[in-house]
Write a protein that binds this DNA or RNA. Sequence first.
DNA 1: GCGTTTCTATACTGGGCGGTATAGAAGATA
DNA 2: TATCTTCTATACCGCCCAGTATAGAAACGC
Lengths: 224, 224
Amino acid sequence: MAAKGFSAEGAGFLRRTHYVPTIMKACCSAKGRPREFCADTALAAALRVFWSKGYEGASLTDLTEAMGITRPSLYAAFGNKEALFKMALDLYEREKLDYIGEALKEPTARKVAEHLLRSALEMQMSNSDPKGCMGVINAVACGAEAESIRAEVIHRGRVAKQGLIDRFERAKAEGDLPPDTDAVGLTSYLTAIMQGLAVQGGAGASCQDLKALIDTSLAMWPEA
Amino acid sequence: MAAKGFSAEGAGFLRRTHYVPTIMKACCSAKGRPREFCADTALAAALRVFWSKGYEGASLTDLTEAMGITRPSLYAAFGNKEALFKMALDLYEREKLDYIGEALKEPTARKVAEHLLRSALEMQMSNSDPKGCMGVINAVACGAEAESIRAEVIHRGRVAKQGLIDRFERAKAEGDLPPDTDAVGLTSYLTAIMQGLAVQGGAGASCQDLKALIDTSLAMWPEA
DNA sequence: GCGTTTCTATACTGGGCGGTATAGAAGATA
DNA sequence: TATCTTCTATACCGCCCAGTATAGAAACGC
């Protein structure tokens, strides 16, 4: 409602504040005192906070403490909380979901599924990253304030899902999947397993439980 | 932290306030002015709010407006927000998750799974209830304030899951499932699908997408 | 009718939220 | 060194949150 930040069309806030968030500037502007913190490092810290607490659960105090910067620095560098979240989401997709793109390159539908599930499992079992999944956490997010965030996350999810649908359609065309296969249904199914994995991981399931989940899922897949 | 409500041990708040939440009294106490609203109806309204917004996303204003009562009435009748949530959760399990108990009575493991998935799908496609799943929404909940809520929801989920594990163990003993079946893994797998269904339902997936998800899941199950 | 009890309505408290104004410190150019 | 730019630090704003004190109205037993 009062979300008149710059993230919507991007231009509004430029008229309201006297400088541009420096993260958006050309990477090295020579003038003036340089920033004392590393924007990338700070963004990575912000990602961890959003990842473990969700958009609404992450307060600015949580964020600034984790990032090691003050509130005005955050606003100067990233715009506002919403914009910071979206940048963190970009980072997340780039660094943590790159296995999806890799999986699509596998030669058969089953190998795609196997790559996806095993990678998702691996990520969920990592103990250097927060549990759960940014997407699931925030697609299920609660409050009204986060509606735009929810929409963004859901949109990105749909895009990723479409890539998988296309891949399975191709598999059908290549005779790799039976011609009467429902590619959309298969994608929803595979996605559901990964979402369930994230939910259970976020709820504190043990690594062996998660592994059993994925092993069972792969045992279900035909032509094992 | 300041959660010194009555839900923990139940006795604390009795010393702090001069009357007992009337919902906990014997159902008809003759004395005094009777309550003007129906506690059950109000609780059902509260459930819908918690269901669609989550624990933290539901403000007292949301709740009292939906329930048609004032703030002090809510506190008098239900104790506090946390206690209200747990009562709503009881109602949810009793009225909306009764199909789980029914499913366990099916004669074969596959029929159990089929009953579960079809019922979950039906619930998700209902347009008289909120989308998503109380459990998933709140097990993934964000804030620190909701930690006790999260724990409660997760605990209830574990109990339900155990029932399913036992059922599959029985199926193994009856020769209905192969003896080398991983009952825990199978349960986690089935649970994951239902969680994924709820996530996708909550994220606005169409009914036909959800149906395709379940149909594909059932097609995967052996001995179709 | 009375007196008691328990309801409701209003208005308030302290605290945390997202976001910002202001002022001073520090690096860069010259 | 002088000046300018852009950083940082502190303290603040209005808003909404969960929860409550107070006071008045309504229904019961007698």
